[in-house]
């Protein structure tokens, strides 16, 4: 059942030109970040660190946009009443929709392959590291989307859902920046500082973006996805019996 929903959602993404514009923008911005801000050429190294480093910031706006319609649109159109009166559990529905968004993000990510071709043409990069980084990036995208899915239940207005998701994702990201941690260090115990730092997308992604797959980092993103998807299910359940 989840798979049937997933297929429908994925088709829905491509039913309008929005998806293509979206992917084009994503690729364009990824390119700009890598080559200008990341100084891909100036670094003179055959790796994609300059590319992956910017993914959290790229995702901060793109992933909430991918996820914003997941539930708010169903509520807006009233189709949620159709969907949840089909013989499908809420968990299946949540997973199906999330999976579609995640696959869509995966497609966008895969389409960045010219950058991989470029680096292979220019030098001799460690392709194992690059594949690991891609997987790490996709995993992080999943976490962003799970947050977006959860926020999408909260409003029938997609824009509101988008903004909520950006805010939550932003908080989850910056908790790892030194400026935030320094502010905490002044008064909070070291353990708290560590926990806050550990909650950050940035801290967790840093290792993954270098191709180091640590069970704890992977576990963090998987856990985050689990938590926010479970919250999505719970929120839908609450709306049902409220």
């Amino acid at each position: 059942m989840s798979w049937v929903i997933c297929k429908r959602e994925l088709n829905a993404y491509f039913a309008t030109p929005v998806a293509y514009v979206f992917i084009f923008m994503f690729l364009a911005l990824a390119g700009v970040f890598t080559f200008y801000l990341g100084q891909f050429y100036q670094r003179g190294q055959a790796d994609l660190v300059a590319f992956f480093n910017f993914h959290p910031w790229l995702y901060l706006f793109f992933m909430p946009a991918v996820a914003m319609g997941l539930w708010s649109q169903e509520r807006q159109l009233g189709t949620i009443e159709m969907l949840l009166t089909l013989p499908v559990s809420i968990t299946q529905a949540v997973l199906g929709k999330f999976l579609a968004a995640w696959l869509f993000a995966g497609i966008a990510l895969l389409l960045t392959f010219p950058i991989w071709l470029t680096v292979n043409y220019l030098g001799d990069p460690d392709n194992g590291v690059i594949i690991a980084s891609y997987l790490g990036s996709w995993l992080m995208a999943g976490a962003f989307l799970a947050v977006g899915s959860c926020m999408s239940v909260l409003s029938r207005n997609q824009i509101v859902a988008f903004i909520l998701a950006v805010v939550v994702c932003f908080v989850l990201m910056v908790s790892g920046l030194s400026i935030v941690l320094d502010a905490l260090r002044g008064w909070a115990p070291a353990a708290v500082v560590d926990v806050v730092a550990g909650l950050s997308f940035l801290t967790r992604f840093e290792a993954l973006s270098r191709g180091v797959i640590d069970v704890r980092d992977v576990g963090y993103f998987v856990l985050l996805m689990g938590v926010f998807l479970a919250a999505t299910v719970q929120l839908l359940n609450i709306k049902k019996s409220a």
Binding site: R8, N11, T16, L77, G78, E81, M82
Partner: peptide, 16 residues
């Protein structure tokens, strides 16, 4: 599984 339900206003996935 045994029910066919038509909500008020017959909502449907418009882009399909």
């Amino acid at each position: 599984q045994r029910i066919g339900y038509l909500p008020e206003g017959a909502p449907a996935y418009d882009d399909m």
